[in-house]
Amino acid sequence: MTPHASLRNVAPDMLAVDTATFFGLEAVSRIRRNAWIGLTERSYLPKALDPRSDWVAMVAAPAFRMLAETGVEVRDFCTIGTGAGLDALAAIEILGAQNIVVLDLHEDVVRQARRNILDNVIFKSQVTLFSAAGDLLAPVADEQLRLDLIYENLPNIPLGDGDDLAVGQTSATFVAKRREPIPHFVSGALVALHWLALRQAVPMLRPGGRVLSSIGGRIPIATMLRLAEEAGYAGEILIYTWKTQSEPEEVIGGYATWQNRGAGPFHFYPAAVLEETFGTLSPVTAGAQAREIERALVPHRLDAVAALDALRRGMSIGHTVAVLESRKD
C-alpha cells in the first residue's frame, strides 16, 4: 500500500490516518494504527492525495527509521513546527521517544496537535507531553531541557508585504524581520529560521544530541552543511530524497520574488527527472550519494523564475529534500 492510501477525509476538520502505512512501517505498537487527526484552520494539512508532497511521510519518518536502525537512543524529543503532531507520533512509534515537546507558532495549532498525540498514543502513562506556542525554541528557553533529538521543518520564504501570519494556513512563510544577526550566506539562501533553530538548540542538547533539519534542496548541499558547521555542530546529510512541490504557485512564486530581489538562485527540477534520477534509491542510500546526485541533476536545474514559467505551462515541478543532521559533540 502506498502512502496516499493511508489517509482519507472523514470530516472537514478531521483525517483518518493509517499510521503504519503513512510512516512506512509493517505495523505499529505504541500508537494507534487507525488514528484520528484533527486540524485547525492554521494546521499544516497532511497531503492525502499527493504523498510526494508530504514532509512527515517522505522526510521525517525515513529519517527517524534510519536513526532507529543505527541504534540511536531518543528518550527526550522536541519538534519545532509540529503542525498536526504527526511528526511527534512518528518519533514515539519509531524512536520510542517518551518525553515529548511539541512547539508551533500558533496556540490553536499546538492545542490541536497535543490532542492528536494524546488521543492516538496507546499507553499514555509511558509518554510525557509538554506543548507550547511561540517562536522557534523560545517557549522552552527557560525550561533547562536536555534533549536527545530536535526535529524541525521550518518555513523559508519571508512573509510578503500585507500578509498576516495570523490569518489562514501560512506554513511556507515567516516574518522576515528578526532581532538576531543573520549571516549573509544564510539570509541569501532563505534559511534564516533553520540557522536560528540550530543556534538556539545548542544549550538544550545533551552531548551527542542531534538536530534534524528538513530542508528543501532548492539551495546547494554545501550551504546546508555550512549551516551546521558555523552554528557549532558536526553536520552531514542523513537522508536525501525528492518531493513534488506542494502549493506550487504560492511557493515557487515566493522563491521567484526573492530571487528577483537578489537572493538565491533557487533550484527546482521537472518532477519526472527527479523520479528517474532517484529511481529506486532509498532516502538513506541517496543520502550517502547526495553530492553525486546533486551533480547529476545540474543539467536539469530550473531557477525559480524558470520553474514558475514551466509550472504555468503545465509541467509538474519538484525539488530535492535533505535532512541535515547536526550533532553536538
Rank of each mutant, 00 (worst) to 15 (best):
F185Q: 01
L302V: 03
F130L: 02
V121E: 01
G318A: 06
G38M: 01
R291A: 15
L154Y: 08
L49M: 11
H194P: 01
L311M: 15
D303I: 13
A197Y: 01
V110Q: 04
R111N: 14
T2G: 11
H267T: 15
P46E: 08
A306M: 08
R8W: 05
T170V: 11
F278N: 06
Q169I: 12
D104P: 12
T280Y: 00
H4I: 09
L308A: 14
E107I: 11
T21F: 00
L196S: 02
H319K: 01
A234Y: 02
A201L: 10
A256G: 05
Q126A: 11
E93L: 12
V127D: 01
R8F: 08
L95V: 06
G318K: 06
L225R: 10
H267Y: 14
G314Y: 07
Q169Y: 09
G209L: 04
L165G: 08
E180Y: 07
G24K: 12
G24Q: 12
A172G: 06
M315R: 06
N260D: 15
L274I: 06
V191R: 01
P265V: 07
P248W: 06
A113L: 09
E107M: 05
G264W: 09
T19Q: 11
I237H: 00
T173C: 14
T277W: 04
D13R: 14
K47Y: 09
H184K: 07
N156Y: 02
L147K: 03
D13K: 15
H184T: 12
D76C: 03
A141S: 15
E229R: 15
T2Q: 13
P139S: 10
A263K: 09
E107C: 05
R114E: 15
A290D: 01
